[in-house]
Structure formats: structure tokens, C-alpha cells
Design a protein around this nucleic acid. Structure first.
Lengths: 211, 211
DNA sequence: AAATACAGACTGACTGGTCGGTCTCGAGTG
DNA sequence: CACTCGAGACCGACCAGTCAGTCTGTATTT
């Protein structure tokens, strides 16, 4: 396999430094030192420190949208789509934890043009969630008394917040966390009737499981 | 009523500026200008910009812990305690939205000593949530298959994330949001049996409500 | 008079970005 | 094959601006 390019080394070093210290606390000199290159090398690969922050944001949100689109295309009912979207998002933490952290922690510091570009993509993702919840209500799978925006943002909150506490070497694996979140969300969204139907049982955790 | 003290004017100006722009993007000069004082006035009231950030953190977390302790003391069952804690936390957004934002967005930039002090208090709050969920499982109110830490953090995520999108002039009031969150959480935590009992119905949204 | 509260010019450290220069490597040429 | 040469990758000293914090001085209160 080919050695990592300078650009890649810079990105990886920056990702880790930004995650740990925040965008503003990390100097270009530190990134340069950590990635074994030079000021010149850095500015040869990136127009600015801002552009670097942007590429980190963009690669992440693009990936997430792709995954969500995949879940939408592969499954038929809103309940299934939501279940798979939630699970695939949480599972993504394994690889993209640092990206997620930077994305939600540092997006305030994107310069205006970059910010707008990222916001557009973030809104696409948000709209996908909104429409799944909406569709689920219309089809009678999800409870009618739940308003779409609040419910959707509650789901986002639950899954996104994970970046604040998840540790790769913690007690629970990403897959376990994903299953628990999916269960919680399904339990609270599905109607009384839907929850009883056999077809929906696969969304729930098995009971009497040893913790 | 007495005129606002310089210290108070500084704190309020800083709060708003930090919320909108982030700690590092706000200079002491800007805070000074916005609060109609001077560099001298600022450094007379605060040891450093870091100390200012700390006092904002501390006043918020202290308030939140007090509220949670109140809910614990006033209610008997874990389900009731959780229900009231969630609702009181969300309702707090009305007054403390800026504090919440700064708390979750900028705590990375607290200097080590201040950070430790805040972390201790945050852990107290976290432990209160953990023990309510744990107690609820032990008493058979909450589903046994849900692990305490993940479930607790999921709840925190749902409610804390609100700072990312809540607007005072939005479609939903804080009280409505609080009721919806409380419903979602109760629906997903309560056991099948508990959910049916009349005593627990008050936790849920009324159905057929017009949205 | 002593302490407190504040004003605002100033300082020094730090940081993002620049710029002239060097190194490497593959294509073209004889 | 030996040689040239240009392009892109990379280097690092340096610059100009910025910002937290200081210091000297003054007004007000006790």
C-alpha cells in the first residue's frame, strides 16, 4: 500500500488535535509538527486553516448523507428506514468519531461561505429525518400525537450527543449502543398497535438479557 | 431596583457574545465595549477571561443541580422523579438558553483547574440521572433490559441537544417541548405493565391533540 | 487618607499566512 | 543511455496583525 500523502497526514493530525483541543487552540505550527511536514507543505495543500476545517466537515456530512440515502433506498416502510438510519448513524461512530466531534463542536468557526455550504448539506440530512417521521405518522406506524420537528430533533439529540461521552474502549460497543437507541426510539414512536405486531418485534431488544 | 453592576453587565454581554461567536472569537475588548466599561473595569471584576468563562459555567451547573435535587426531594417514585427532572430541565431553557449553549459548547476551553471544578459538579448531576434510572429498574417501573448508562446518556442527549436548535420565537413553546420529551422518555422506559396503569397516564401526551 | 472602582494607553507573546528558495521526478531530446 | 528542464511538492525564516493582560492615573466612597 502507498504511503500516506502529506495532505492525508495533515488531515488526520488536525482531526485529532481539533477534537482534543478545539479549532482555535490548535495552531498551524502544531498541525505541521504533528504531521511531519512544514508551513509550506501545509499551505501547498490547503488554502487556509479554514479550508482544512471545511474539508473535515464536508467529508463527514457527505458520508452521512450517503448512508442515510442508502437506508432510504433499501427499505420500504418508514419504521424500517428509521430503524436502519439510526443504527447506521451510530455505527458510524466507530470510524468517524473525531469527525463527528469536530463537526458539532467547531462548525461555529467555519467562515461564512464554508458554513453555508455545510449548512445546506446538514439541512438535507435533517429533512430526510423529518420526512421519515412524517411518513411514518401518515402511514399510521408512528403515533399521531407526536409533532414531526420536535420528535425528529429529539432523535438527533439522542444519537448525536453520543460524541460527548462515547469511548472506543468503554463498556459498550457501538453496535450495542445502536441497538439500544433504536429500541428506545421505536418504543416511543410506534403506535400501541404497531408495537404488538410480530413484524415489529425485531426492532426491540430481547428481554431478560444479561447486562 | 438598583442599576446593574459592572460585573453583571460584563457577564450578560459576554454570555451573548460567547453564545453567538464562541469563546475564542470574542475578545475582551469586544466584551468591554458591549458592556460599556473598560479594560480596567473588566480586570477589576475578573481575574482573567478564563475566570469569566468559569463563573458562567458555575452559575449554570449549580442552578441545574439545585433543580434536580428539588425534583428528587419532592417526588416519591423514580418515574415521577425522572418525569419532573426532564420537564424542569427543559423549561430552564427559557431563561438559561445562553448559559446552556456556552456550557456545552465552550467547556473545552476552561483552563484545567476550572475544568476539574465544573466536571465534579457535572458528574453529580449525571449521577443523579443514573441513580433515578437504576432505581426505576429495581422497582420494576422501567424496563429491565435497558442498561443504565446508555439509557441515561440517551436522555441527556435528547434534552441537552435542544440548545442546538431551540429558538424562543419558534413554533413550539418550551413547555410543549418539555411535555413531548417527557412522553417520549416515559414511553420508552416504562415496562409494558406500568404503561397501562392509570397512575402513569399523566406522563403521556393526550392523543388526538391538534398539532 | 485609604480603599475601591474604573479608565484607557501600552506591551509582549503568539499566530495565520507569505514568499523566495530547494528538492524530486518524469518527459523530452540527442 | 545520459542529460536537460520544467512542474509540482515542500521548506522555514519572516512579517504584520491581534489579543490577553498590565500599569499608571483618577474619581468616588468610606
Amino acid at each position: 500500500m502507498p504511503a500516506k500523502s502529506t495532505k492525508q497526514r495533515i488531515t488526520e493530525a488536525a482531526l485529532q488535535l481539533f477534537e482534543e483541543n478545539g479549532f482555535h487552540a490548535v495552531t498551524v505550527d502544531k498541525i505541521v509538527k504533528e504531521s511531519n511536514t512544514s508551513k509550506g507543505g501545509f499551505y501547498h495543500n490547503f488554502k487556509s486553516k479554514d479550508e482544512l476545517l471545511y474539508t473535515i466537515h464536508d467529508s463527514f456530512i457527505t458520508y452521512v448523507i450517503d448512508k442515510a440515502a442508502e437506508a432510504h433506498a433499501s427499505y420500504h416502510t418508514p419504521a424500517e428506514k428509521l430503524y436502519e438510519t439510526v443504527r447506521s448513524f451510530v455505527k458510524m461512530f466507530e470510524v468517524y468519531r473525531a469527525h463527528v466531534t469536530v463537526f458539532y463542536q467547531e462548525s461555529l468557526y467555519l467562515s461564512p461561505d464554508y458554513f453555508d455550504s455545510i449548512k445546506k448539506k446538514r439541512d438535507i440530512y435533517k429533512d430526510m429525518m423529518f420526512s421519515v417521521v412524517k411518513e411514518g405518522k401518515e402511514r399510521g406506524e408512528f403515533r399521531d400525537e407526536l409533532p414531526v420537528p420536535i420528535t425528529s430533533m429529539a432523535i438527533f439529540g439522542m444519537i448525536n450527543w453520543t460524541y460527548k461521552w462515547y469511548k472506543a474502549d468503554g463498556q459498550y460497543s457501538v453496535k450495542e449502543i445502536a441497538d439500544i437507541y433504536a429500541d428506545l426510539i421505536m418504543q416511543s414512536l410506534l403506535t400501541e398497535q404497531a408495537r404488538k405486531e410480530p413484524a415489529y418485534q425485531r426492532f426491540f431488544l430481547r428481554t431478560n438479557r444479561v447486562m
